[in-house]
Design a protein around this nucleic acid. Structure first.
Length: 274
DNA sequence: CATTTTTTTCCTGGTT
DNA sequence: CAACCAGGAAAAAAAT
């Protein structure tokens, strides 16, 4: 293969997101979206201890903070208790990471849209480690816009002995697509996180679910980063996108290049989900 | 561990 | 010409 354009998208991306990813003290406040996706009753207030644990892991992951830097024991509580903690409580419980956690939970509280699946979750410590290594191995230091609030994120799950699917409820969560590891979800999550989406993809028609890639190669690069595949290209990514037509996850939009449209089988992108 | 689903690679050929 | 779009094939990766 001939390595054609080796234009460093890295620099382009890092330049765009720049230092915004260094969380000295909660810089960007996501005041952006007012969406209320996922009508799930998975608001932090109702989280189980286990879910609180997951949330912790995810936040740590997305900020690339070593999980051992905060005493998890301090968060041995359920969602209700977690939500009642004050900013100071967070500082006390997690030190310098406190603000980040506080910011995260605050966001989740008012937007009530996290969506963690308590059903079946593979619980393997290895996954955690694998994820951490993944992040560490990534040369780019860009902030992955897809791992925030509504994104289930790549991080599968940490291990937690007892509390597995303890949560009662006749028919557990029916969803069977954990992590947001699918391409279309990745794309969706970028669209849903405008604050951290430096013009990579843009809504063309928000209510119709039409969007357009502004920086095709950059998105491919980001996708590749997530899949730990540095040779991802838009050419290849787009092939995968085209397979979604058949499954009606995407609808074809011809004529306009780099434009796609969510189909009836794509969920979670509407501002006011059913 | 086997099967099925998704994604990745590669490619030929057409289009903007 | 460069950058896309369309799909077919086949292989690799992920799920289940």
């Amino acid at each position: 293969m001939s390595v054609t354009s080796t234009t460093t998208l890295d620099s382009q991306l890092t330049a765009t997101w720049g230092s915004a990813n260094t969380y000295a003290d909660v810089p960007m406040v996501m005041s952006g979206y007012t969406s209320r996706l996922w009508p799930h009753d998975c608001q932090p207030q109702f989280w189980s201890k286990y879910q609180v644990w997951e949330w912790l892991q995810q936040v740590m992951d997305m900020h690339q903070i070593d999980a051992s830097s905060i005493p998890f024991q301090n968060f041995d509580m359920d969602g209700h208790q977690l939500c009642s903690l004050s900013y100071q409580d967070f500082i006390r419980a997690a030190g310098s990471v406190g603000p980040i956690l506080f910011h995260s939970i605050t966001e989740l509280k008012w937007s009530g849209q996290y969506h963690v699946e308590i059903g079946q979750m593979d619980i393997k410590p290895e996954n955690r480690v694998k994820n951490d290594l993944f992040f560490l191995s990534v040369n780019l230091e860009i902030y992955d816009p897809t791992i925030h609030p509504l994104a289930p994120a790549a991080s599968p799950t940490p291990s937690s002995p007892d509390i597995k699917r303890s949560y009662s409820r006749p028919h557990q969560v029916k969803k069977h697509s954990p992590r947001g590891t699918h391409l279309w979800e990745f794309i969706r999550d970028i669209l849903l996180n405008p604050e951290r989406n430096p013009g990579l993809i843009k809504w063309e028609d928000r209510t119709e679910g039409v969007f357009r890639f502004l920086k095709s190669e950059a998105v491919a690069q980001l996708w590749g980063k997530k899949k730990n595949n540095s040779s991802m290209t838009y050419e290849k990514l787009s092939r995968a996108m085209r397979y979604y037509y058949k499954r009606e996850i995407l609808e074809r939009v011809d004529g306009r290049r780099l434009v796609y449209k969510f189909g009836r089988n794509a969920r979670g992108w509407r501002e006011t989900e059913k």
